[in-house]
Design a protein around this nucleic acid. Structure first.
Lengths: 193, 193
DNA sequence: GTGGTTTAATAACACTCGTTATGAAAACAT
DNA sequence: ATGTTTTCATAACGAGTGTTATTAAACCAC
């Protein structure tokens, strides 16, 4: 039985999540991470492992704690409500915190060094997972007559994800909620009935 | 009268552009840049200045040489043709080269370190410039009756840019041209008339 | 009070980063 | 053949990167 851990692991992970959300995986240094977490480097290593492991934990937390509106959306009665719920909640999340806007799934790594490739692939897979869920939901909508026979669930899912990604980029660039909502409105106006 | 420069400055800049396109500003190291350009570091410095200056030159070249379909699009007769031309050409460009997909305007810096902030702002401004051009074009379309009175040129421009950014993210993630075209088709499906 | 275990802080490691100093090579004028 | 200028390659600089070794501190069982 040894020394108790002196810092709140949960809060430290939250702090690291915010740094990665703001600066991306490669843009975030241990100087940033330790300052935000209020913990020295060896302590971060002891609690979370290396930088990549820390990022993966932060990403998992991001999906669990911040994207909880997605399973809710998938249970809504119509495909248009699903899309609307996701779009407007994403806009809210992407603009909620002044010091880290956008989406971790996009900010993490878009283009990076060779060393960042495993993390970039992890992000691609996480986004693909979400897209699969959407596609399946839209297939169900089609089967139920909520979407017309001519509708293409895969294209709709890809379209919705594209708009979400674009909104994340724009939020990170400082676009207003009003503008982002107008983008979402326009996207929904194309929704098949 | 001294020694002649031994490398092709034009080709070296192209090579650097490709590295930045693939790895982003921070993900690209001088090891990458010198290997791709076939030139030693002091020679790159001599010809282009520091890393940030090199990136800015690469970005200017990207806009001049690769985005030349945009002024063409802006002269098309209808707003829908403008949007379609840009979307399909962007998809072509974002998927043309197997070893650097996506768009430099997005891959450059989305989220980065404090040191990358000037570059990130330059990219935001470049994208904003393009959005302004679109907005003005759509305002003209509205004045000419090509877009209905209820249409909002600013929202349409922001929407089009969002889809373009989303497509760039998806192209960089390895999505097929077919999928990306379906996204564009969906975006255009109810373009206001 | 001692021993064993776990954690924390300091410092350093090995390496890479972007940048530059220095000497040599290649050019041209004389 | 020499002098001047420009460019190139090598090497190193100063700083920062992610990671870890070492010692001390804090805990608990006995």
């Amino acid at each position: 039985m040894g020394r108790h851990r002196e810092f709140d692991v949960d809060k430290a992970l939250d702090a690291a999540l915010c740094v990665f959300w703001r600066k991306g995986y490669e843009g975030a240094s241990y100087a940033d991470l330790t300052e935000a977490a209020g913990v020295e480097r060896p302590a971060l290593y002891s609690a979370f492992g290396n930088k990549e492991a820390l990022f993966r934990l932060a990403l998992a937390r991001y999906y669990e704690r911040y994207l909880d509106y997605i399973p809710v959306a998938l249970e809504l009665p119509t495909s248009r409500e699903v899309a609307a719920h996701i779009l407007y909640n994403a806009i809210d999340l992407n603009t909620r915190y002044a010091d880290h806007t956008g989406c971790l799934g996009i900010n993490g790594v878009l283009a990076g060094s060779d060393e960042a490739e495993p993390v970039r692939q992890a992000l691609i897979e996480a986004r693909a997972e979400g897209e699969l869920q959407l596609r399946e939901r839209f297939e169900r909508a089609k089967a139920e007559g909520d979407l017309p026979e001519t509708a293409k669930p895969d294209a709709l899912a890809a379209f919705l994800l594209a708009v979400l990604h674009g909104i994340a980029v724009q939020a990170k660039a400082g676009f207003s909620r009003e503008t982002l909502r107008a983008v979402a409105d326009q996207a929904l106006s194309t929704w098949p009935r």
